[in-house]
Each structure stands twice: as structure tokens, then as C-alpha cells.
């Protein structure tokens, strides 16, 4: 068993009176692929935002990669996001006026310095070597999601977070994206936490946890 990368103790998140995440205890060992399932409003996106340093917990402890997230300043959180995690969104969220390669380079720029050759390589690795100079609007949904993956992994994060990365994709593209993620994980050895409500997608992971109304209700291991 390898070291733990995510460890939460009594983690809660309230939005006013609404409790999005009830006290949650969770441990994720390094290198695991964890799927998080639940219907909308079950608190899975909240969990993901907390793990990605986009949001702060209301209560409880949260350690990601040995870093106490409660104690980080706003700029500390920004540094954590750029050096430690990569995030793939359902809506892709690419900057519309930048080309594919520039979108990847932007992540490099915020991290350290842009390196176009490396960004090209990353896009070639996700199979977009022929669409470097296209803007997001000229790419299909699956291609956009692959740009998003290239952007997420460009800074060699320890933790890759996916927020319904295949929610907007057809079956074929979904398969392609999942295959890609599996390959990349084999090479880069990052941990994946992926939120989904598609059991088929969840089955790609090593373990699946089910959230309902902010409570962890069930967890099961996938047989490989």
C-alpha cells in the first residue's frame, strides 16, 4: 500500500443553511483511480472543488498531498492549483480566443514559463497533433475535452480531478477519452478523482464511492 494523497476528517461544506457536504471521512491512496457517483445535488461537485483548492471547507480537516488546505492563503491556493492538481471540466472551459496550443501554454504560463514545443508534444500525445492552431469553436466536443486533458496534465500534477468529463460526449468520444486517461495514468502515475453519474464511466476506476445528500452511503471496489 502506497502513501495517502487525500485525507479528510469530518469534512463539511455549508452554503448558508444548506449543507452540501455532511461530515465526510475519506482516504485516497496515491495512484488510485477513484470514481465518485451520485445524482445531482448529492455534493459530489462540492467535494471535487474542495479537493481542487477552488473552495474552502466550512469545517473539518482536509489534507491533500500533505498540504493542510485550511491553512493556505488565497495565493497559496493558487500555487497549489497550478503545481499540484489538474482539472478537467464537463464544459471544457477553454479560452475561446486562444488556439488549442495557446490554451495549453496558458497553463504553462501561470505555472512558470510557456514552452510551445512541450505544449505541442502534449497535444500530440492526446492525438491532436493536427489541430494545434484551431480555436475551441472549431473543435468537436471530444477534441475540446482532449485539449482540456492536455492542459490539465501539462504541469505534471499529482492529482487529476474530473468533473463529469464525459457528460457532454457521445459514446464513442467517451470511450476514447477514458482510454486516453488510462494510458496517461499508466505513464504519469497520477491519482484520479472523477465525478460522474454514468456507472459505465465509474467502472473505469479502482474504487467507487456513492454520495447522497452530502453523505457517503456506499463504496465498492471494481474488479479488474
Amino acid at each position: 500500500m502506497s502513501t495517502t494523497i487525500i485525507e479528510t476528517g469530518g469534512l463539511t461544506r455549508n452554503y448558508g443553511d444548506i449543507c452540501a457536504l455532511k461530515p465526510l471521512d475519506l482516504k485516497v491512496p496515491e495512484g488510485e483511480w477513484l470514481s465518485v457517483m451520485g445524482h445531482s445535488g448529492s455534493g459530489k461537485s462540492t467535494l471535487l472543488n474542495l479537493l481542487g483548492g477552488l473552495d474552502r471547507p466550512s469545517n473539518g480537516s482536509l489534507r491533500v498531498g500533505g498540504e493542510d488546505m485550511q491553512g493556505l492563503t488565497e495565493d497559496g491556493l493558487a500555487r497549489f492549483r497550478r503545481e499540484f492538481v489538474g482539472i478537467i471540466f464537463q464544459q471544457h472551459h477553454l479560452i475561446p480566443y486562444l488556439t488549442a496550443v495557446e490554451n495549453v501554454m496558458m497553463a504553462q504560463y501561470f505555472h512558470s514559463v510557456p514552452d510551445e514545443a512541450e505544449a505541442r508534444l502534449a497535444l500530440e500525445r492526446v492525438g491532436l497533433g493536427h489541430r494545434l492552431k484551431n480555436r475551441p469553436s472549431e473543435l468537436s466536443g471530444g477534441e475540446q475535452q482532449r485539449v482540456c486533458i492536455a492542459r490539465a496534465i501539462i504541469n505534471s500534477p499529482k492529482l487529476l480531478l474530473g468533473d463529469e468529463p464525459t457528460g457532454n460526449l457521445d459514446h464513442k468520444s467517451t470511450l476514447m477519452v477514458m482510454e486516453l486517461l488510462k494510458e496517461l495514468r499508466a505513464e504519469e502515475r497520477f491519482t484520479i478523482v472523477m465525478v460522474t453519474h454514468n456507472p459505465e464511466v465509474a467502472a473505469w476506476g479502482d474504487r467507487t464511492i456513492y454520495l447522497d445528500d452530502g453523505i457517503l452511503v456506499r463504496e465498492e471496489r471494481t474488479r479488474s
Binding site: 504553462q108 505555472h111 512558470s112 514559463v113 512541450e118 501539462i154 504541469n155 505534471s156
Partner: peptide, 14 residues
């Protein structure tokens, strides 16, 4: 070999 590390070193130098 790792791009991110290489770039971070470069950024520090710059």
C-alpha cells in the same frame, strides 16, 4: 526530463 520541473527551474532563473 519532466517538463513542469524544467520550466519551474527556468522560471526561477528568469
Amino acid at each position: 526530463r519532466q517538463g513542469a520541473q524544467r520550466r519551474r527551474l527556468l522560471a526561477t532563473g528568469i
